[in-house]
């Protein structure tokens, strides 16, 4: 899942290196439109529907947080 999520992130914002960021939001790698696009890609790739209340910046700050939110919403590996 981690590898696939990095692939999605790199396709979303190819100009950034997500592996070196401690906080994707704080570091300016993802804005709110990117998060929306990311959610759509995660839902498609991991066959889940992410609850709207889980679409908050703190759930998209790191690869671990993103994996957690996908798993919480029934995403499949």
């Amino acid at each position: 899942m981690e590898k696939n999520i990095y692939k999605i992130l790199n396709e979303l914002r190819p100009e950034f290196d997500f592996t070196t960021s401690k906080d994707f939001i704080e570091d300016g790698l993802l804005d709110s439109f990117d998060v929306v696009a990311l959610v759509t890609e995660l839902e498609t790739n991991f066959n889940c529907l992410i609850d709207a209340l889980d679409i908050v910046p703190e759930n998209f700050t790191s690869i671990e947080q993103i994996i957690a939110v996908v798993r919480k919403n029934g995403g499949t590996l």
Binding site: G28, S32, V35, A52, L53, I55
Partner: peptide
Amino acid sequence: DGKVRSYDDLWMDGSAVFNFMQ
């Protein structure tokens, strides 16, 4: 929210607005 804005523009905190609505 990642966009360049002046004080004359409409500022939107996209995440805050989205979460308010939901």
